[in-house]
């Protein structure tokens, strides 16, 4: 009985992890189309981490780093070839006007901070 219970819980947890991190598409915390979006870099995450915009729409992402850990030092948009240093407690603007719809990830240098810009 206990064997079954433990194994079931284990498998359930594995499923939960897969669903939570890879399958679930977050909607609630995404910021809708706006011209200027402030993104806080704090406690290991970008807030908000999901941003939506439209093709050919000019958008400015204002990063404000509040996390002193060196991990948070740089924000990289790998597919857009953009990379900016984020000095502590200062705002750094990245202006974008993306021509192609798609999902553009932004991360810290180590890929631990993760955010996504969805262009529709």
């Amino acid at each position: 009985m206990i064997t079954l219970l433990v194994n079931t819980i284990g498998i359930f947890l594995v499923g939960l992890i897969i669903w939570w991190f890879w399958i679930y598409q977050s909607r609630d915390d995404s910021t809708k189309i706006d011209n200027l979006i402030e993104i806080k870099v704090k406690d290991g995450v970008y807030q908000p981490a999901h941003i939506e915009t439209e093709v050919n729409h000019s958008i400015t992402l204002r990063f404000i780093r509040e996390d002193p850990s060196p991990c948070a030092e740089t924000v990289v948009f790998s597919s857009l070839n953009i990379s900016k240093q984020l000095p502590l407690h200062e705002s750094v603007d990245i202006s974008l006007n993306i021509k192609k719809p798609g999902e553009y990830e932004f991360t810290c240098q180590m890929g631990m901070y993760r955010g996504k810009l969805t262009v529709k």
Partner: peptide, 27 residues
């Protein structure tokens, strides 16, 4: 880019490995 691709899956994978490890020891 290789490292970037890995990093997106890394931590959840480690969590899964930890659970599987516990299950193996349990069984």
């Amino acid at each position: 880019r290789l490292a970037d691709q890995i990093s997106a899956y890394f931590v959840p994978s480690v969590l899964i490995i930890a659970i599987v490890t516990a299950l193996i020891w349990f069984n």
